[in-house]
Design a protein around this nucleic acid. Sequence first.
DNA 1: AAGACGAAAGTGGTTGA
DNA 2: TCAACAACTTTCGTCTT
Length: 312
Amino acid sequence: MPKKREREEIEQVKNCPECGSTHIVRDYSRAEVVCEGCGLVIDDGLIDQGPEWRAFDSEQRQKRARTGPPMRYTLHDKGLSTTLSWKNKDAYGRSIPTKNRAQIYRLRKWQRRTRISSTIERSLALGFADLSRISSVMGLPRDVRERAGMLFKQAAENRLLRGRSGKVVVATTVYVACRLDNMPRTLDEISNASQSPRREIGRTYRFLARELKLKMRPTSPIDYVSRFCSELHLSHDVKTKTIKILNKAVENKLTSGRGPVGMAAASLYIASVLCGERRTQHEIAYVTGVTEVTIRNRYKDLAEKLDIDICL
DNA sequence: AAGACGAAAGTGGTTGA
DNA sequence: TCAACAACTTTCGTCTT
């Protein structure tokens, strides 16, 4: 049996409407037509003509053969649920006798009720798919993913997804989970990985924090240090030096009201110079996502108030 | 030529009336 | 709801190495 093609290039859509990329593929495992450039889902509900099972001999083939589309895991019920018509007709078009109407009514009522919980499950399934995509792009550890998943579930169960983009909510739960696990990511990083606008994530963050009564403490600049250090290929010495500087800054109350990322960036700059492993303001600005101007302002502050001499 | 500097205007979010 | 405000960004010309 020839191997089934999981993904294939597509010819109908020439360019992605979002980013213009021509790299557009059919992903049968997700039933989507996706732009590889920006991740935009151009079409979904794609029907895979192949079976989802494999048969190794003719007996198995006979047992497993059936009609209907293949199962899909991105749907909460794997696409196998029953639909119940609203007409008082049976499958042959005959009208249903009056004495059975009450029964049918009860069936419909339960159909309606179970469907409410399944919309939640559906958004969960979609959200989790998004979550695993974002966390693998960002390389997040499992604990953070789990936490984000739990948060998303809470949000869905409390009906907080209404009128909000699921993608943004997922991105927000990732942001929150990172912070709660003391490995904060900046809104910009989350925004890049999830392809959602930063301001939306920020707004949703405040909303979720209020609705789910999340007790968020302000992030400490120290939590950013190791990650930035390794991205800048700086030694352990620079790292400890940076943390020393930051602790002193906290003691002298230089950090309150200041953006933690800016503080971390400036301390990192100072430490890198003092340890003779100098990185330019430009490099640090690029990695940390704050501007050179902010690094300058912060580090001037620090140097002056903490009596640090930087001989350039 | 690259990096650092700083002034000035612009931006998005918070706060308090 | 709106204006004032602080922190931060953008932009750009100048100085230093």
